[in-house]
Design a binder for these strands. Structure first.
Lengths: 187, 187
DNA sequence: TCGCCCATGTAACCGGTTACATGATTCA
DNA sequence: TGAATCATGTAACCGGTTACATGGGCGA
């Protein structure tokens, strides 16, 4: 269901677009929030056409089909935003590693945490770059006076920073305990 | 793959357990990090037995099979924790709603944010209750001097608090803009 | 003309969810 | 004896990923 919504959202933002455009759009803008490859998008667009949520507005060169959203599609999108409770189950590999971490020796656990941390630093850099590039290009505002995608980007940035803080604290906590218990000086 | 790991982790913590126990264990302890129903767990245990990661230690009343982890299983778990990069794609319905929110009228957007907020408050309460109950029952410590699952719980709590903060700020931001633009007094 | 990008699709597979199905044990 | 819980399994389905397959247009 959410794939539909994401497609309807992008189509609203773009006005009209081909499956190819939407695939690229996924990579660029929605990527850190939702992912989908072309092999998922093309069949979904076909189904959505059958359901009357989008229409093939025109057919361009080399089989290119240009889709646009219909009033029914707009209604569906609006209904989902207003009415859908996001109950999506949280399945996180990072959290699972965190969960199981105490099964390891402290030294090993510290290594894992360091790796997680650098992973998060990488992601933070990515999101910050994205924000910078969005600020440069002045995307048109939407009704709420906030740019499309900005709220999600802000949320993502905060969450990554929180995770980083958590990793630092966990490292400190375990590091402190090992040096206390063993009476050994940290390297 | 991660289902295997979670099962191996629980088996390590429990010593030995039946599929039924593990199903309940999922509901109780790993739930906010990873979910799995019995219909997924039973076949997976069968496969893991075939792969030599667990063994049926004994068969109890009414067909109850008691599994325990093998040295190979322990090795697999350790290898995953130490070596696996958690690249699991972030697919979040909350983030998707956040992303698309600027497509709505400010008033409607505010409603959605309020609903998201109360959702998060609910989850926060849940996690805090879980932490309280864990503190009461003194679960045995593991090698790192941190209790099994505690790091993940801490991470979860921080993330929910961050999300809540985000929702509050987003509400303030949009609310401010609407009242400024319209010159109307907030209800 | 050769290679790259545009552009669309299909098929096999995998992990996960929901629903179907069955039977033993325990307790009121 | 009837209801609840213990206990295990299978099957249909759905969303998503990877890989396969094809062909048009454009620029060097």
């Amino acid at each position: 269901m959410s794939l539909r919504i994401a497609l309807l959202g992008l189509l609203t933002a773009y006005g009209s677009a081909s499956g190819y455009d939407l695939t690229k759009g996924f990579e660029r803008s929605v990527a850190h929030v939702w992912q989908a490859g072309h092999s998922q998008i093309y069949p979904e667009l076909a189904k959505m056409t059958a359901d009357g949520l989008v229409t093939v507005e025109a057919e361009g060169a080399r089989g290119r089909k240009i889709y646009s959203i219909t009033p029914e599609g707009r209604a569906e999108l609006r209904a989902w935003l207003i009415g859908h409770d996001p109950t999506g189950p949280t399945r996180s590999e990072v959290a699972l590693q965190a969960f199981l971490l105490p099964l390891l020796e402290p030294r090993e656990a510290l290594d894992v945490l360091e790796r997680l941390k650098s992973h998060m630093e990488h992601k933070l850099a990515e999101l910050e770059a994205l924000r910078a590039s969005k600020q440069a290009a002045s995307t048109p505002e939407r009704t709420s006076g906030v740019r499309f995608g900005d709220l999600a980007l802000d949320l993502g940035l905060r969450q990554v920073r929180t995770s980083l803080q958590w990793a630092d604290d966990a490292i400190a906590q375990i590091g402190r305990q090992t040096s206390t218990e063993e009476g050994a000086a940290p390297s």
